[in-house]
Amino acid sequence: MQIDWVTVAAQIFNFLILLFLLKRFLYGPIVKAMEERRALVGAQMREAQERETQAEQEARKHRDARRELEEQHDELMQQARAEADDRRRQLIDQAREEVEGIERRWHENLRDERDAFIRRLREQMGREVCAVSRQALADLANRDLQAQVVTVFIGRLGGLDEQRREELRAALANADRGPTITSAFELSAGQKKDLATAARGVLGGDDNVRFLRAEELLCGVELGVGGRKIAWSLDSYLDALEEALIAALERETAEEGESTEGRAAAHE
């Protein structure tokens, strides 16, 4: 166990060489690589941080844009809903007006139809009544209805009061034509003669009496002097019948209208 100074010197030399070589091949390159990596990682971290910041900004921008879009969407939806409500109300009003128009027209049509029906009915009834009366009178008295009508009319002329006769005479004096007897049927020569006589009895004088035919008189006979008239026909009876019928139909229509309005209200 002794110190060999040659070896000591050699080992010092060896150590210094080793120190130099390791510094050259180990510490230098390794430290350099580590520092470079540290710088690289730092740069990457900074870059990543910048990207993150950028991404956050982008995300915030997107969120804002989306919120704005949602707000716009809500606004548009409200607007559309309001417009739809307005349109619905308009359509309902329009439909109501149309329905009311249709109802009005229907009522008018109904009225027209009723009037036409009544007219037709009156004519028909007049004819029927004439026919029935004619038949009944013929059956009962063995005389036809026309003769009976003429008789009744002549009786009526004879039964006129003095005031009436005066009015008729005054009318005749002012008239530019003579008296006219209008009948719904063809008069026989005897009937014409009786009627002319009766007329002259009422009017006085011997004016020539003109005979005319008019179907619409309905089994009736009429004496026209100037603007005045004395008549007998089924018209007066039929007028009463017509009034009764119109009253009945109007009642019926009013009831129908009420029930229709009730149904319409229930639909609304």
């Binding site: 166990m1 002794q2 110190i3 060999d4 100074w5 070896t7 000591v8 010197a9 050699a10 080992q11 010092i12 150590f15 210094l16």
Partner: peptide, 11 residues
Amino acid sequence: SLSTTVALALV
């Protein structure tokens, strides 16, 4: 070796 350790200690 004492020579080596002495050398290192001297260093």
